[in-house]
């Protein structure tokens, strides 16, 4: 059974996805000075709406803050062979973004440096980031 849900993104997530299409990662500056990636619709501290026009670009390299090995990939996962899910704090961001990490299991460590691998074609979807990959040291 399959349903194709059509969702409205709202202005902020829409701007984030539009950024991905342009191969940029955008975040929101919140009222405490933190940069939140992906950007939320509302400021978690003040509850004020986030304005899409105030989003800032962050780096495309970052640090793995946590990760988990996925031994049994499911339909729709970024890979059809076992791979890692990782939380990545991009340079310039204060929060972590969840995505797949393409690296052998025994090379993955918390704190390792990774970078965005863009999809061959970007359309305005989270999969425009194909995955993260290790930064060559």
């Amino acid at each position: 059974m399959e349903f194709a849900y059509t969702r409205s993104t709202g202005p902020v997530v829409g701007a984030f996805l539009t950024g991905l299409r342009d191969r940029k990662v955008l975040g929101a500056k919140d009222s405490t000075g933190r940069t939140v990636v992906p950007p939320p619709e509302y400021d978690a501290s003040s509850a004020a709406p986030i304005e899409a026009s105030t989003l800032v670009e962050v780096g495309q390299e970052g640090t793995v803050t946590s990760w988990s090995w996925n031994p049994v990939p499911r339909l729709g996962n970024p890979f059809d062979v076992p791979f890692a899910w990782a939380l990545v704090r991009l340079d310039g961001a204060d929060t972590s973004l969840l995505h797949a990490l393409d690296a052998p299991r025994d090379t993955i460590t918390t704190g390792m440096r990774v970078k965005v691998r863009w999809a061959a074609e970007t359309v305005g979807f989270i999969n425009d980031i194909a995955c993260f990959e290790p930064v060559a040291s």
Binding site: F3, A4, Y5, A15, L17, G76, G124, F125
Partner: peptide, 17 residues
Amino acid sequence: MTEPITGIVTPIRLDYR
């Protein structure tokens, strides 16, 4: 394609055995 993104399609699938 320069229009901003306003919507996405997210397929949800279940395989029954």
